Simulated scan of single mutants.
Amino acid sequence: AAELRRNDTERAQKQREEDKEIARLQREEDKKREEDREIARQQRADDKENARLQREVDLKIARDKRIQEYELTEKEHSLYQSQRAHEIVFAQENYIREFMLEEIHYSGNILLTYQRELSALLGEFQIKPDDLDRTLLFTVQMRTRTTLQLLDTTRRTILVRTLFQANLLNDKWKKHMAILYNANVSGVQFDQVIDRPSYKFPDIERADLRYTSFRSMSFGARLDHSIFIQSDFAFVSMADGNMSNGSFIDSVFETTNFDRVDFSGADFRRCTFRNISMVNCSMFGVKLQETKLFYVNLFGCMGFQIEQIYSLSAANKVTLPNGTLLHSQEETDDHIF
């Protein structure tokens, strides 16, 4: 019996050791499986991170590509716009050039036609310009006025010179009968037209005389109700003339004789007078706002008011109507009148 118990004990001991070994092997196997699972998890995490990074790279590449394509498109568009603008400017310049050439050709034809018609008119009736009756004079005046309206400034000057050479610019016809009455002679260089210093200048009432030039001339014509904006008067004698109700805005007068001229109602705003004689002239209602007077003699002028001095922008060495010499605008006061 003791032997039997000992054998049973040994078998039981052996069985426990076998069970322990099996349990140990099972634990090692479980640990290996856990390690495998951890490796798999880490691999999945790495794969996921790699995929995320790859997506970011792909997105950045796509974004950079879009930006490059946009910048390239903008450059191409800008280049196209610049080229288109250049083409438009070039086309406009060509159009303006062709238009100006056509205008020159058109104006030249108009002037030539007028000269031929004037020559034919005077030749047909075989009369001298001084002998024109009122009907022919009206015809010449109307044709002249229409033609002047269609010409540029250069050809207007040529037309006026044609009238001068034909002796149609004289003082025989007055007021509304004058050839240039109410005519558009803007831009005409009268100092290039009339080469006789003592020539009796015709009346030019109510004419458009903007941007005209009168230099080294002498005349006493009627220029009332005319427009002389931005005109140039230099070394001119217009004594005893009539320039009433004319507009002379932004014009320049230098070394000019205006003695006894009627300036009533004239507009001299922003004009410049330098070295001017205006003795005994009429200044009723004259506008002088922002005008400059330097070395101007107004002795004996009628209608000149203190307000006109105050409206000047500059004044120096001005002889006032009562003989007082105004050295600067600041010296102006009521007692000088």
Rank of each mutant, 00 (worst) to 15 (best):
V160C: 11
V160K: 09
V160N: 10
V160M: 12
R161N: 04
R161E: 07
T162W: 00
L163I: 12
L163C: 11
L163V: 08
L163Q: 10
L163G: 10
L163A: 12
Q165E: 01
Q165T: 04
Q165W: 10
A166M: 01
A166E: 06
A166G: 05
A166R: 11
N167F: 10
L168I: 10
L169W: 13
L169A: 15
L169C: 13
L169I: 15
N170T: 10
N170G: 13
N170Q: 11
N170D: 14
N170F: 09
D171R: 10
K172N: 06
K172S: 15
K172M: 13
K172H: 02
W173H: 03
W173S: 02
W173N: 04
K175P: 03
H176T: 07
H176D: 11
H176F: 13
M177I: 05
M177S: 04
M177L: 09
M177C: 06
M177E: 09
M177T: 08
I179T: 06
I179G: 15
L180F: 12
L180E: 00
L180Q: 01
L180G: 02
Y181G: 04
Y181I: 10
Y181L: 07
Y181F: 07
N182V: 08
N182P: 01
A183W: 01
A183R: 05
A183Y: 01
A183C: 05
A183S: 15
A183H: 10
A183K: 09
N184G: 12
N184Q: 14
N184H: 12
V185M: 07
V185I: 11
S186D: 09
G187W: 02
V188W: 00
V188K: 00
V188R: 00
Q189C: 03
Q189W: 06
Q189A: 06
F190D: 00
D191W: 14
D191C: 12
Q192C: 02
Q192T: 08
V193A: 12
V193L: 07
V193I: 11
I194C: 02
I194N: 08
D195M: 02
D195G: 05
D195Y: 01
D195H: 09
D195S: 12
D195K: 14
R196M: 04
R196W: 08
R196I: 03
R196N: 03
P197I: 10
P197E: 03
S198I: 14
S198M: 07
S198G: 01
Y199D: 08
Y199W: 07
Y199F: 05
Y199K: 09
K200A: 12
K200Y: 13
K200E: 11
F201G: 12
F201A: 11
F201M: 15
F201I: 15
P202I: 14
P202W: 03
P202G: 10
D203K: 13
D203L: 11
I204D: 01
E205T: 03
E205N: 14
E205P: 10
E205Q: 14
R206M: 08
R206D: 05
R206Q: 03
R206L: 03
R206I: 04
R206K: 07
A207K: 00
A207G: 10
A207M: 08
A207S: 15
D208A: 02
D208V: 01
D208M: 11
L209H: 05
L209Q: 06
L209P: 04
R210G: 06
R210W: 02
